[in-house]
């Protein structure tokens, strides 16, 4: 039976509703505020998107397997803080390790990602082998990571970074900020993993039907651990990036970022019911959020009201998402 025009319009609104709202908002802001549609502003938005995209790409794996990761924000903080303690200028008065030479930037990043990956692997272990629901397992990890970060840094705010580290945020290559390049590379690698490797296919299978995945010979447990470990490594990278941008870090870096990341994935097409979602989903979703935040800022909306806007978007996005897969009777 062919769909009526009303049904087709309805479908379109459901599938792309949030994006439509964004387009309207952007057009309106561009028309009424000067400088919104400027190269400088877009570079700024892209820069904001970069770390958010890395987080969203990491958490996408968890959402595609019908899970979630509440520990993302705290792991971002851990990553930013560890990086901060290793990359301070030798002559900085408040240096964390007064007698230690600042590390090589790449080595520090690798170390941060390794530590964070271990946190993710532990969450993944509890989820896959001990059948703890992802919500609970990552909730527990969230608290543990926060506590560990507090103990490690003694709640000291960090700063005084080496120029090599801050260059991660200020340097450019071919007109694009380094961080944008990092995001592009991470997106490309993630696309490759999702579409061109067994691990990616196993991830979708587990999300689509975990029991069927077992029967079909998918190494479910191993795959789940890798998904959460990989995600955590990416949160660590994001923390590293955010620290470079801000020139400093505290234990509250990244607090609550997991919510926007999950919502961003959902807006773009990752389903919380599992088994569906692409890299483009994360990109679209993150773009929507960053454009919205920038537009509201330019329109002079109270910064505090942004939280309400984020919440409303999450409500709408997830309701529409669920509707897509439940309404079809």
């Amino acid at each position: 039976m062919e769909k009526t025009t009303t049904q087709k319009v309805q479908d379109f609104l459901i599938n792309y509703g949030v994006i439509l709202i964004m387009v309207i908002l952007v057009v309106y802001t561009g028309a009424t505020q000067s400088n919104f549609l400027s190269v400088g502003n877009f570079n700024n938005i892209l820069l904001n998107m970069s770390s958010r995209l890395v987080i969203a790409l990491g958490i996408a794996g968890c959402v595609i397997t019908a899970g979630c990761d509440l520990s993302a924000g705290r792991i971002i903080g851990l990553g930013g803080c560890i990086a901060g303690t290793l990359l301070q200028k030798i002559d900085y008065s408040g240096k964390f390790y007064p007698d230690m030479q600042p590390w090589n930037v790449f080595l520090a990043l690798a170390f941060v990602m390794l530590i964070c990956a271990c946190c993710g692997a532990v969450s993944g272990f509890f989820i896959a082998y001990l059948h703890v629901p992802p919500f609970i397992a990552t909730l527990a990890m969230m608290e543990i990571v926060y506590g560990a970060n507090l103990l490690y840094t003694n709640a000291t705010p960090l700063g005084g970074y080496t120029p090599e580290y801050t260059a991660v945020s200020s340097g450019r290559f071919l007109f694009l900020n380094y961080q944008i390049w990092i995001a592009i590379i991470v997106a490309a690698i993630t696309w490759f993993i999702f579409n061109m490797t067994r691990h990616g296919k196993y991830m979708y299978a587990i999300g689509g039907n975990p029991q069927a995945a077992e029967v079909a010979g998918v190494p479910v447990k191993k795959t789940m651990v890798i998904i959460y470990a990989k995600a955590a490594a990416m949160y660590g990278l994001a923390g590293f990036m955010l620290g470079a941008r801000a020139g400093g870090a505290s234990v509250n870096l990244g607090l609550g970022y997991e919510m926007e990341a999950i919502a961003a994935c959902t807006i773009g097409g990752v389903s919380v019911t599992g088994g569906r979602g692409k890299v483009s989903s994360a990109i679209i979703g993150v773009a929507v959020f960053e454009l919205m935040k920038a537009a509201l800022q330019f329109l002079g909306v109270d910064a505090n009201a942004q939280w309400i806007a984020i919440g409303v978007i999450i409500f709408i996005a997830i309701s529409l998402d669920i509707r897509k897969y439940v309404a079809r009777k």
């Binding site: 296919k201 995945a213 010979g217 998918v218 088994g275």
Partner: peptide
């Protein structure tokens, strides 16, 4: 439906899931 098919995936993904090791 319970433990056979991956409903939200394509026919290709449903057929291929067990043989990826052979086509790399």
């Amino acid at each position: 439906r319970g433990n056979g098919i991956f409903g939200c995936l394509s026919i290709k993904d449903n057929v291929g899931i067990s043989v990826y090791n052979k086509y790399l």
